[in-house]
Every structure is written in structure tokens, then in C-alpha cells.
Amino acid sequence: MKTVFQRTPTLKDCPTHYCPGCGHGIAHRLIAEVIDELGIRGSTIGIAPVGCAVLEYDYIDVDMIEVAHGRAPAVATGMKRTNPDKIIFSYQGDGDLASIGAGEILHAGHRGEQITVIFINNAVFGMTGGQMAPTTMADQITATTPKGRNVAEEGYPLCVSELLAVLPGVTYIERCALSTPANIRKAKKALKHAFELQINKAHGLSLVELLSSCPTYWRMSPPDATKWIDNKMTKVFPLGRLKG
């Protein structure tokens, strides 16, 4: 029988704790595949966030650390500065990166830290129960915006990638969507490019934003959630290369 697909070795052979239709599983697989394709498992250190992906180290088989909410870029700085030959990546959700960790990501980019950031944007706080994130869409109902996000009081969705793209210390930013097979292939290409930049010691920070579904807190079926990414989210968070 011909093998058409097999699990990449760096992705551990275990069931995940993620909800059906969640994008984290796809993102994890893509990262593991890229690490194996680039042959960097032995020199890579990953940083897990606080949020649904806090147990990322249970799924991706590289040296990993779990850090305080939002502080991954500072931790990555400490690692990379003392280990310039290691490949350091952080994996952060939108609550983590865009809210409590807005200062850390801004300044890591500002300093031009040579790290790779994977930014999962699912427009909501997942682990704590579906509260509003800075990236929550206008009128989106969440646990803390029961009548929908009122932009007059709660602000518009925050486009962090666009903000970071203006920094000279940021080398590469691309926004992709974990929605259709075509988009997922593009996401993998972007992730690979981001890691390659670091391997080649290109100056500065590389970041890939992945629009990712959260059917549970979007209160949708997984197929509807995928459509919502393409039809709604990409209107506010347009896909494509923002820098580099």
C-alpha cells in the first residue's frame, strides 16, 4: 500500500486536548513538519504560551518551556541572546500576544530579536472561557461582550501584525489562515520561511499570524467556523505578506 500521509516524527503520537475543529492542532502539525523538514529538532527551543496551547510541549517533541502570560518574547530574548546558535520560537495566542503581552512583543520587535513568533489569532480568549480579546470582531458575542463587542466602548479589533510591520527590527510578517487546504499550505510555507530566516541569521524578528478557528467560543460548527475565518475575519485581518 502506498503511504500518502504520515505523522512527522516531531509531532508526538498522542491525542490532543483541543476541541473539535480547533486550529491549534493544525498549527502544531505544521510547526512540527517544518522543524523536521529543516532538520532543526536538535537545536530548537519552543516557548508555550498561557492559553489553550499551554500544553504544546505535550504535542511537539522539542525542548520547550512554558512561560507567564504574554512574556514569551522576553523569555525568547533571554534564550536567544545567550544562545545565538539555537532556533527559538514562541507560540502565542491573541490574548497572550495582543493583550497582556503587547509590550513584550512590541519591544522584542523593536530590538530586532532574532526569534520566530507564531501568533494564533482566533478572536477570543479560549482557555478562560471565551472572553473578548483585543482581536475580537466588532459585534462578536463573547463571555464578556454579551451584547456583542461595542467598538465605541471596547475598541476595534487590534491588528498587531500591521503595528509591528512598521518596526525596523521586524524582518518578516505574514498573515495566513488555517481554513482551506490551500490556505494551510500557504501557512506552512510562511512558517518555513520564518524559521529559515532565523537559521540564516537574518537580522530581526519574524512573525507568522495564523487566523485560527474556535468553534466552541464562536458558538459554531467546525465547518461554519472555517467559513467565518474566510468570510469575516479576513475582512478585518487581510491575508498576505505584510513585510519582508
Binding site: 518551556i65 512574556r71 525568547a76 530574548t77 533571554g78 541572546r81 545567550t82
Partner: peptide, 26 residues
């Protein structure tokens, strides 16, 4: 060796956290 002026004390201690996790004295 490494010196970084961090953006805040929060960042500073987390940089220590990162460097220490790799076995360095920070």
C-alpha cells in the same frame, strides 16, 4: 557576555527566566 536593557522589570525577569532555562547563569 550578554547585557540587555529591557523594556520593563517584567521583561527583565522573564529574560532571566529564558536565559536560566537554557542553563546559563543570569
Amino acid at each position: 557576555r550578554v547585557f540587555v536593557q529591557s523594556e520593563s522589570e517584567l521583561a527583565a525577569i522573564n529574560m532571566v527566566f529564558g536565559a536560566s532555562a537554557t542553563g546559563k547563569r543570569a
